[in-house]
Structures are given as C-alpha cells and as structure tokens.
Design a protein around this nucleic acid. Structure first.
Length: 747
RNA sequence: GGGCUCGUAGCUCAGUUGGUUAGAGCGUUGCAUUGACAUUGCAAAGGUCAGAGAUUCGAGUUCUCUCGGGCCCACCA
C-alpha cells in the first residue's frame, strides 16, 4: 500500500466494478419490504451543483445502508427536461445566432431543443457515477420519455373525465418576453423606484405607476368608508381622455386603501390582479389593452403597437401636454414581480387550463393535506411540516398550461370547422410567418401549411376543445401549450416505477423516502402527494427528508452575480469524492441552510488518509506477526484485557448510534460518531496500546475485527476509500458494499 | 403585513424530552516524533451561550420582551 491514499486513481475503476457486478440492482424478494428512493431528477442539460452533490450524498448513504442491511434496495436515476429553464437557455443561444423561436415551427423548435439537450446531455450521468451514486441505471428515466408522456396524458384524460379540469379565463402572470405564464410561486419580487403619476380623471385625481393601461380602465374605485368621495359612488363620471371622451363608473370596494395616494384608484381588470378580482365582484368589463407580445393593442388608439415602456413614456408626455398630470412622485418605491429570467411580469387575462384542487365532488388537495397531518407522510425536519400544511390549506386552483414548446404537449385538439375564431400563427412554405383565424386557414386552403408550420394557437374562451391523445380527424390542430413541469414531475414516483401495472410498481410503490431540498416542498412534494393519492389511493412515500440549501463560503446564497458559486468539481479534484460527500453530510445543519463547510471537507480528506494508514499498520503487523502467532483470525474472548473489552464496547456503542441517528435522519451525528471513534479511540488509543502489547495474538485479532467493522459502517458515507482498503485487506470478500451491515448481535 | 428560522470559541457549526467542569472541525500556541499516518501525536489557550426579565432546586435548552441576521408568503394601484 502506498504511504498516502491516492483517491484519484481508484474512484473510477471501483465504480465500474460495482456497476458491472450488478450490485446496484435490487433482488426482488416478495417476503421482504423493499427500500426505494427515486432520485429527484437534475436538469438534463445541466451540471451538478453543490446542492445536487449533497442530495446524492445523502441518498447514496441511505441506499447503501439499507442495501447492506439486506433490504431489496432500489434507487432510480433520472433527469429532467426543465421546461422553461432549458427553453430560455436555448433561446439565448438562438439570439447569439441572430435567430429567435419565431424562425421555427413548433415541431422544428422542439426538435432543435431536443438536439441541444442531447448535446449537453450525459454530464449529469457521468457526474452521478463520479459521485459514486449506486443507482440502478437499467431503470433510468428522462422526463420526456414516451412512458412518461403516456402516463401524464392518461392522467389528464382521467381528470377531464372526472370533471377536474377546466379551461378558463384567468388572471395569469404572463411574461411577454418569455411568451409564457408563471405560477405565483415561480415569481421573484424586486424593489424598484418608479414615478408615481397623479393623473386627473374628471373630478378626481388618482395615483398610478401604470398610466399606459388607462385605455383598459372600466371603473374608478374608492373605499366605501371614505367620506371624501361618498357622493360619487354609483355615479358615472365623464371626462376627456387621450383618445376622446371616457365614461367610467365609480365603485366602492374595500380593496382600496384610503391612505394611498388620493384614495381613488383606476380599475383595470385586464391587467391587474386586484382589479380583476374587483371586476368580478362588480361585474366590470375586462378590456385588455396589451397583447401577447407586450405591445399596446388597438384599444390604445394612436398608441397601438408601442411597447409598454414606450407607451408609458408617450402617454405621460401627452397627458402632461393636456395638463392632465397633477404632479409626479419620482421616489415611489414598490415591488415588481419578475419571471425566472428576470423580466417584468404582465398580469393578463388568458384562457388557461386549470385543475380543480378542491372540487365538491372530488378534492385533490384535501387527502394530501390529511396524509401529512395524520402522519402517513412524515416530514423531516419536522418544523418544515408547517410550510406544507399552510400551502395545502391555502392552495387555489392550479393553472397547468404553459406557453412553452419544451414540454409535454397538452393532448387536446381544436377543430378548425367548429372554431372559426381560433388564432393560429404558423410558417408558410416560403418561410413567412402568418397569423390567421381558423376560418381563414380553411378559406385559403392552407391547412397543411398551418399544420406543418404551426407555431402557436390561441384559442379564445368560446372555442371547444376535444380531448384525445391523437388527432381525431381532418382539420384538427393540437393545443400548442404544454403541461406545467410540476404536472408531470408530480407523477414522477409513478412513472419511474412503471405505473399502473408493472412488477416494479407493485413491489416498490409506495417508495420509502423522498429526499430533496426544502425549497420545492410546495412546488413538487405537495404535487407528488396529490397525484399519488389521486391515482393509486396510496401516498407516494413514507418519509420526506428536506435538506438545507448549501450557501457560499461567505454564508450568502450562491449566485453568479456575486461570483461566489462553488463548483463541486474543484473540490472533487482537490479532495476527492469521499471527502466532499462526507464534508457536506457532516456539515449539514440538520435541514437548515448552511455555509459550504470547506474545513470539514479538508478534515475528511485527512480522515480518509488516516484510515488508510490504519490499514497499512495492520498489514505491517501481519507481516511481522501473522505467520508466527495466527493472529487476525478469531478473537479469543477468554483472554481479553480491559482495553480490548473497552474498545469492543465502544464499537458496539458506535454501531448503535449510527443506526439510531440514521433512522432519525441525523446524518451529521452518525458521521461524527464514526469519525471520533475511528480516529480518537481506535487510532489514537487502541493502536498505541497494541504496539506495546505482549499478547499480540489477542490484541491484533481485536484490532482487525474492530477496524473492519468500522470500515463497513463507514462505507455508506465514504464508499470509495473504504472499498479500496477493503480490497487490500486479506480475507476480504468480493466487495465491501455487499458486506452485511454490522449489528449488535454480531459483536 | 403574516409566517419560519438563526444569534453558542477567531471562523463553520453540534448541543434531540431542562440535569455534572458547554462540544466538534478548522485556525492559534507550546512540546514531541527517524517504521502506520507531518494529511501525525500529546497538551494548552480561547465562550458573562446576542441582551433583559420570568418559570424552576437547576435554563444554552421553556416563556415574554428588546436588539440584530437570513429566508418564505402576501400586498403595494
């Protein structure tokens, strides 16, 4: 053995051997309860980040532990197409080439992104191997595999049949730049300083940051308690606007804050969430003035075609000129909603697909809430449970359609004959882009071109969709929206196991532990519980363990703009996978966020070397004593000295501790226990005692036993170095990863 | 505004139902070591547990308030 453990040479080779021997594949035994984990799929075209490393470290630890305990253990790997994120990345690439998504038909664009993802693919797989992840590669799943699409489509169909899906106008968070909607939870909020315009509206002066939406106003509102404006409530006001006379109703509603501005607000139901809801209460007309490209539409008269920003500038200038601006507060600070890519969100009313989460005939969310409350699903750390419960209690109907191409297309079709008002954009044969109505396409006999060059359908609310998984008959176009990525990933435990009737599904479902970062408890965990119960009647997992976010060395969130992003590769190269895994695990703050524990990574690199050298010491002793005194075979219990008994007792305590802590998901405590024992008890004390012992045959047998048992305990934490040492020790079996887990009775 | 969470050694963090002298890693200081390991060993220094009050025989741990971080959610016309 070398004097120093050289992790670099060995890790790859060791992993290859494990994989070839088939150790990662479970042996199904109907008499035994399986242990199953589904890997939360990392982004297929991405690279491992530090959070992924922690995730893999924890899951591999759990999986190896259970496998060694003899449970039929399955860990299913997979990758995620990451809808919006990937498409944004791809479109950024297109932009560099001077192109945009509008140069492609929907199908071509999908194919181009597919190729793009394939080119960037494989990184995650090789990094999972590098990490030592003992996943069963034969069950690998990608979120756009056919089997996933089939299941997801079937689920949608089932929900349609059970009246749990509807298509409705809805105020959505629309990003004109991305051309897609976002769920509330996907948004970021940022403080901005913007001018607050005090505009004259007939008898009133009211404050707004968005004068350009004035063409969509359908009322002005005051607070019912506001004495100042009492006399106006219910009346109509009339005044000169930029495009002629304007008539607006004055309504009274509690949502108006008397303290803000002048206590009067303009109501624009088409472009503001509050106003939309007020509009529903007061039966106001919804009058959109901004189109899907973020431009003012024909209702804005001479301002039509201008961007929101430019429109605002020109509207303000015109208002000033007409003396309709009372004054401007230039230092108004408010927060604006931003999409994932950082663009400003435009609230819009659009037809979207929704899931009823709490329908009277079938509640989707209630059983999922009860599952956690009743303890059928147990969440660790426990204080995270409240996040889940609150979210489920407050959950509203879930918009599941996205105006993305990169995703699973919603299996719904529109007949052009039946839906003359359908708005379809497509590329003609000659490459020009046209937007035509359903009626227009038929009139021009362009159906084939439209079908082939199809980019996007906007189906006004009166259109009649037909639910099929393939084209019904002639002159049908499929919905161009895709499912929200959480709609499909919410069914991940099902699709990866071959729901509904595969052997795998029958045996391995429900899974044992869902391990992921706490930030997606609402987005993902809740959806999996809902779908699991809805489709199978059973919860998808028994335990949820949520790890904290790994922050940068400075304790702040990692971000490209701060330049403090930690690249796990660097640490793997410098300290080895074992050290990185163990460092992260021992540095985790039990589910709380924590700064990247660099010190611990270094400490565990040293630890790897320490146990390596303990192995060398034992081999050296063997050379010296082994032949003469037949040590290292069996412990002679009748001749044990107190120090032998002490170390054996201590070992038994460590075995107990490790099991106990792992059962409680207290990974750091478990790793710490082994570390302290091996280094400061076994190496520092016991080995020193062995060196001066007369009865080497007794002591060396104890030493070898305690050492090998500790190595076995350590293996799920530091798989590579333990395997490498194991292979060097005489009397070893095939691999340490198939050694039986140490128990108290075996001591 | 609602909620969660944290404040313990120079730094990163443990401290689980309240119970001897408050722990670990890294760092610091001193000494040692030529055959397992300098990626070492032995030892030491370093903490009024953010502050104040309450409960208790006993509080880092429970409760209240104050101060100071971090995060989540909602709203902001």
């Amino acid at each position: 053995m070398d004097k120093v453990y050289n992790f670099k040479d060995k890790e790859k080779e060791i992993y290859k051997n494990w994989e070839e021997k088939g150790y990662f594949k479970p042996k199904i035994d109907s008499k035994k309860k399986p242990f199953t984990i589904i890997l939360p799929p990392p982004n297929a075209s991405g690279k491992m980040h530090t959070g992924n490393v922690l995730m893999v470290a924890i899951e591999d630890l759990l999986v190896r532990w259970h496998r060694m305990k003899g449970d039929p253990t399955l860990w299913v790997p997979g990758t995620d197409h990451a809808g919006t994120e990937t498409q944004i990345t791809f479109e950024r690439e297109l932009k560099k080439q001077g192109k945009s998504r509008f140069n492609y038909s929907r199908e071509e664009l999908y194919q181009a992104i597919w190729d793009f993802v394939q080119n960037n693919n494989g990184q995650i797989e090789s990094q999972l191997r590098q990490m030592g992840a003992s996943v069963d590669w034969s069950r690998y799943t990608f979120t756009l595999d056919d089997k996933v699409i089939t299941t997801v489509n079937n689920t949608f169909k089932k929900m349609v049949d059970e009246d749990l899906v509807y298509r409705g106008n809805y105020m959505v968070n629309y990003c004109p730049k991305c051309g897609t909607t976002y769920a509330d939870v996907e948004l970021k909020h940022e403080e901005r300083r913007d001018p607050l315009y005090y505009m004259k509206y007939g008898p009133f002066i009211l404050a707004t940051v968005r004068p350009e939406t004035k063409f969509g106003d359908t009322a002005v509102a005051v607070n019912p308690k506001d004495k100042r404006y009492e006399e106006w409530v219910g009346k109509e006001i009339e005044f000169d606007g930029l495009n002629g006379k304007v008539q607006l109703k004055v309504i009274a509603d509690d949502f108006v804050d008397m303290e803000f501005g002048t206590g009067v607000v303009k109501v624009t139901p088409a472009h503001d969430k509050n106003d939309y809801e007020a509009g529903l209460r007061h039966n106001l007309e919804v009058k959109p003035v901004i189109d899907l490209n973020g431009k003012l539409n024909e209702k804005a008269g001479s301002y039509a075609g201008l961007s929101i920003f430019e429109g605002r500038k020109q509207v303000v200038a015109a208002l000033k000129e007409k003396g309709l601006i009372d004054h401007i507060d230039e230092n108004y600070v408010h927060t604006v909603a931003l999409c994932k890519a950082g663009h400003e969100i435009e609230p819009m009313v659009l037809p979207n697909w929704f899931i009823k989460v709490d329908a009277p005939h079938k509640s989707f969310k209630k059983p999922a809430l009860d599952a956690v409350k009743s303890g059928k699903v147990k969440i660790f750390p426990q204080w995270q449970e409240i996040t889940y419960v609150r979210w489920m209690e407050e959950m509203r109907d879930w918009p599941i359609s996205r105006q993305n191409v990169w995703g699973i297309r919603i299996p719904v079709w529109y007949s052009l004959e039946k839906n003359p008002t359908l708005q379809v954009s497509y590329l003609k044969k000659d490459g020009t882009r046209v937007i035509r109505s359903g009626e227009g396409i038929l009139k021009e006999s362009e159906f084939e071109e439209a079908e082939k060059g199809l980019q996007k359908i906007i189906a006004p609310i009166e259109c009649i969709p037909e639910f099929e998984c393939s084209s019904p008959t002639d002159h049908y176009l499929q919905e161009t929206d895709t499912f929200d990525t959480w709609f499909s990933s919410g069914q991940w435990p099902l699709v990866t196991l071959g729901y509904p009737d595969s052997e795998d599904f029958k045996y391995f479902y429900p899974t044992s532990v869902l391990e992921t970062g706490w930030e997606i408890i609402r987005l993902w965990v809740s959806r999996m519980v809902m779908f699991g119960i809805y489709l199978t009647g059973e919860v998808p997992f028994e335990y949820v363990y949520l790890h904290g976010i790994v922050r940068a060395l400075d304790g702040r969130k990692m971000s490209k703009s701060l330049g403090n992003v930690i690249n796990p590769e660097d640490y793997i190269n410098e300290y080895g996978v074992d050290a990185l895994r163990m460092g992260l695990i021992s540095g985790t703050a039990n589910g709380k966020d924590f700064a990247f524990p660099k010190d611990r990574v270094i400490a565990y690199k040293h630890f790897g070397n320490k146990i390596w050298n303990m192995g060398r010491f034992i081999l050296m002793m063997r050379d010296q004593w082994g032949k003469e005194i037949s040590a290292f075979t069996q412990i002679d219990y009748s001749s044990l000295k107190n120090e032998d008994k002490a170390v054996l007792e201590e070992l038994a305590r460590v075995i107990k501790t490790v099991d106990l802590e792992l059962e409680k998901f207290r990974f750091a405590d478990a790793s710490e226990a082994i570390y302290q024992f091996m280094w400061h008890t076994l190496a520092d004390k016991y080995i020193e005692q062995v060196k001066v012992r007369e009865d080497k045959n007794v002591a060396l047998a104890v030493l070898q036993h305690v050492y090998m048992t500790s190595l076995t305990l350590l293996h799920p934490f530091m798989p590579f170095v333990t395997e490498e040492i194991y292979q060097k020790m005489p009397g070893s079996g095939e691999s340490i990863m198939i050694e039986p887990w140490p128990t108290l009775s075996s001591q």
